[in-house]
Simulated assay, not measured.
Amino acid sequence: MEVSLYCDEVLSGKTEVDKVYETENVLAYYHTRPFYKVHIVVIPKKHIPLLTTLQDDDMELFIELMTVVRKVATKTESEYGACRVITNLGAYQDSKHLHWHIVSGEKR
């Protein structure tokens, strides 16, 4: 099984993060090595490798995940005037744990 940075480091508590928003099943936090002026990551606490591997029984979690993405994106857009909401698949996705990036500002 491939190592998941999010499970092994963030959710385990090995790597401390600056939390933005948290529910029972979802965590949003500032990226530990940001690529943008504002760089927030939103992850489900359950390990799901990819958007395309979501199962029918994950749909309630997916709705909760997208609700958190919407709330964080709304706040980011309000504070900075604009933001991008990004997820990656295949070779573009370094960590095989479903996650969304909410970014704003110039790339670092």
Rank of each mutant, 00 (worst) to 15 (best):
P34R: 02
P49D: 10
T15R: 15
P44I: 02
V42F: 06
I43C: 03
Y6M: 10
K14V: 14
T52W: 00
T23I: 07
Y29C: 04
H39R: 12
V38R: 01
I40W: 00
H47N: 07
T32E: 05
H31C: 10
V41Y: 03
V26Y: 01
H47K: 07
H47G: 03
A28L: 09
H39M: 03
V17E: 10
V10N: 07
Y21R: 13
R33L: 13
A28Q: 09
D8K: 14
K45R: 04
Y21H: 13
Y36W: 13
V41R: 04
T52S: 08
R33P: 02
S12Y: 10
E2W: 01
P49T: 04
H31L: 01
R33T: 08
Y36Q: 05
L54E: 05
E9P: 06
K37S: 10
P44H: 03
L51I: 12
Y36E: 06
L11P: 09
E24F: 02
D8W: 12
L50V: 00
D18H: 09
P34D: 12
C7L: 09
Y30F: 12
V17T: 13
L50C: 02
T53E: 06
E16L: 13
I40K: 08
E16Q: 15
E2F: 00
D8G: 13
D8I: 10
D18M: 06
L54P: 00
E24P: 07
E2I: 10
V42T: 05
K14N: 14
D8C: 07
E22W: 07
A28G: 10
I43R: 01
I40Q: 05
Y30I: 05
D8R: 13
T23Q: 05
T53F: 02
E9G: 14
T15E: 11
M1N: 11
I43S: 04
P49W: 00
T23D: 03
E2D: 15
F35T: 07
L50Y: 09
I48P: 00
Y30D: 10
L54A: 05
A28Y: 08
Y29W: 06
T32H: 02
V10S: 04
Y36D: 07
L54C: 05
N25Q: 11
D18P: 02
P34T: 07
P44S: 01
K19V: 14
T15H: 08
Y21F: 15
Y6E: 04
L11N: 13
L51F: 13
K37Q: 11
F35V: 06
T23K: 08
